[in-house]
Computed example of a mutant assay.
Amino acid sequence: MLAEEKLKAALDSNSRNAIDIKEHEIGIIESLEPFQINIGGLILTDKNLIINYDLLEHIEYFKILRGTVGDRSETISNGSILFENKLNKDDKVIVRPISKNKYYVSNKVKVGESNV
């Protein structure tokens, strides 16, 4: 076996033993400031993460909002709604790899609890 083949075999063996995030993994939020998620001992930070916009605090703007309150119809024009951050320490989230060192946090989940 040539030296190059030995080196390649060693690298392949080491990469198989490294932490590998599969298609979807469950991560646990370790902290919000700084933002960190733990996936089986691998700590991901905001440098590695792309987080679903709807999970974070954000403002949605609208042109017209119509609704009924009691027996009255209300219309509000050109307003905004503040949505609070949905993530807390120890929450479980779904994490998917999207490139070598970037991961997408898609949803918050409950694990092992029935909502039925």
Rank of each mutant, 00 (worst) to 15 (best):
M1A: 12
M1S: 13
M1C: 11
M1E: 10
M1N: 10
E4Q: 11
K6F: 12
L7I: 15
L7T: 09
K8T: 07
A9C: 05
A10H: 07
L11E: 06
L11P: 00
D12S: 12
S13G: 02
S13H: 05
N14E: 12
S15N: 04
S15V: 11
R16T: 04
N17P: 01
A18F: 01
I19F: 00
I19H: 07
D20V: 15
D20K: 15
D20E: 12
I21W: 01
I21N: 01
K22D: 06
E23F: 05
E23Y: 06
E23G: 11
E23A: 03
H24S: 15
I26V: 15
I26D: 05
I28S: 08
I28G: 05
I28P: 00
I29E: 00
I29T: 09
I29F: 04
E30L: 14
E30Y: 08
L32R: 14
L32F: 05
E33N: 14
P34C: 09
F35H: 12
Q36P: 00
I37P: 00
I37W: 02
N38H: 02
N38Y: 03
I39L: 06
G40F: 01
G41S: 04
G41P: 00
L42C: 05
L42D: 01
I43T: 03
L44I: 03
L44H: 03
T45D: 00
N48W: 01
L49W: 05
I50D: 09
I50E: 11
I50R: 07
I51V: 15
I51R: 04
I51D: 12
N52S: 10
Y53M: 10
L55D: 02
L55W: 14
L55Y: 10
H58F: 13
I59V: 15
F62Q: 13
F62V: 14
K63P: 01
L65F: 00
T68M: 07
T68I: 13
D71M: 08
D71I: 11
D71Y: 08
R72N: 11
S73G: 08
E74M: 14
E74F: 09
I76R: 01
I76W: 11
N78L: 10
S80H: 12
S80F: 13
F83L: 15
F83E: 02
E84W: 06
E84I: 10
N85L: 09
K89D: 04
K89A: 09
D90L: 13
D90G: 09
D91H: 10
V93G: 00
I94E: 00
R96E: 04
R96W: 04
P97T: 07
P97D: 03
S99F: 06
S99G: 03
K100M: 12
Y104V: 06
Y104S: 01
Y104M: 15
Y104N: 00
Y104P: 00
V105T: 08
N107A: 10
V109A: 02
V109T: 03
V109P: 06
V109H: 07
K110H: 12
V111Q: 11
G112P: 06
N115Y: 15
N115D: 08
V116Y: 14
V116D: 11
